[in-house]
Design a protein around this nucleic acid. Sequence first.
DNA 1: AATAATAGTGACGAAGCGTCACTGACGATT
DNA 2: AATCGTCAGTGACGCTTCGTCACTATTATT
Lengths: 252, 252
Amino acid sequence: MTPPRLLDENALQEREQTIITVAITLIQRLGIENLTMDKVVAQVPFSKGTVYKHFIGKEDLLLAISNHAIKVLSDLFSRAYLFKGCSRERMLLLNFSYLIYAILYPELFQSVICAKSQSVIGKASEQRLNENDELGVELLTAIHGIVNDGLADDSLTLPEYMNVQQLSFANWSIAYGAIALLSGEVESCSGRTDLIVERELFNHSNLLFDGMGWKPLTKDKKHCTELTIALQSLFPQELALMKEKGRQLNFS
Amino acid sequence: MTPPRLLDENALQEREQTIITVAITLIQRLGIENLTMDKVVAQVPFSKGTVYKHFIGKEDLLLAISNHAIKVLSDLFSRAYLFKGCSRERMLLLNFSYLIYAILYPELFQSVICAKSQSVIGKASEQRLNENDELGVELLTAIHGIVNDGLADDSLTLPEYMNVQQLSFANWSIAYGAIALLSGEVESCSGRTDLIVERELFNHSNLLFDGMGWKPLTKDKKHCTELTIALQSLFPQELALMKEKGRQLNFS
DNA sequence: AATAATAGTGACGAAGCGTCACTGACGATT
DNA sequence: AATCGTCAGTGACGCTTCGTCACTATTATT
């Protein structure tokens, strides 16, 4: 006997996306700490059992949200990667695309961070973890690409004891540090009076790039107005959205 | 009538410390995600009600643990601050003291990060939040101090658009980024093959310091052996403990 | 119509959090 | 010595959340 095929793959995907979207909305409204499966189920046109067909548990759903979030970020990264400009400028743009993302979608940014914790990873499905890995690699690809371009046109030289991966990671790491500590309503860093996340990200990036000898150095060229223009051309919609939120980037 | 004084302040403090210690042990054993008040109560010689006299909720206990953790870190920081050496070397040492801390006490490191989240902050007691602020400032004091020493002896000059606080924060931020992404068993950063936290921390720190123009620059002096020696003299016990754990620092 | 296999449901058990009505101990008062 | 008032301490209980599973509904095949 042939087992009846009642569910098409497409509808399944769609339903999964519905659940994820609802969950993200709930996180926006109530905060990630108040997300419960019961609330998700209540907001969704199917029952608990069905939701649990898609996600083996709350943590699996969280990781799915994180994966969705990484896809959104990935899009911003690739725009920075494809920008026509010198490599150093593009890397700075990439860092700022990360910032824009963190400001515009704080709930997504938070989900990704939250999903890194052992408590989530330990309970998510194998498949979703694999997807997470792939997406992570995809993100790094953009960074690697820019570093490689810098090496190719000689505006950047590898320090003797560092390879491309390490340089790329250094960039990711400093952007992550500044944004995680300063962005959002997270009371992350006491004594952080007068610290403005976009300004610090700008400064940290330039200090790092100067330290790498990534040309043009700050002493030869102020990257400030250039960045403003590039951001405007690359992320017009996003900046407009931020303006609506009453948030404008300001690095003087 | 005189209200009977039956409880002395000292015993209260001691009891609170007992609870905190037990909770930390539980976190070590079971992971922070599996810490429950019931388990703490079961391990402690007094009842739930009494525990809740000290901590208004689970989150309050978590913040108390975080505060304890910061005190431990503070001690390491001040040792780095008091080291006899040039300012740049001391700042590098401070960053490494942070790393040692993260490796030696991963549960404390994790508690601090965890306690930054809105879900914890929002439910902790006012008093404990104040203590947290003070401790945070204390931490930054050591960093500020080293930066100021660097400025005083002219090995470091403020970039025109940055002040002491910003420079200090830059250092904190890059150390945080590297350690948070690479240290511990947190599956934080996919595609992180071949990244070794101590080596990357070493590199990021030096790139940043070079970018700041903090003398002596890497091109004039390899800071590698110097760091090894200083670490051995400042943190002999800690390094020995790490060795016991089968973990040695390796930045080549 | 009967059957078989899958899709979907929601009541329920387990576990965790935090409360509150109660117990008991001790000093003060009579 | 008896009574009272106050406060430390207790743990059973109510509430919420998670995730399961026995059951119902739906659809394709015979």
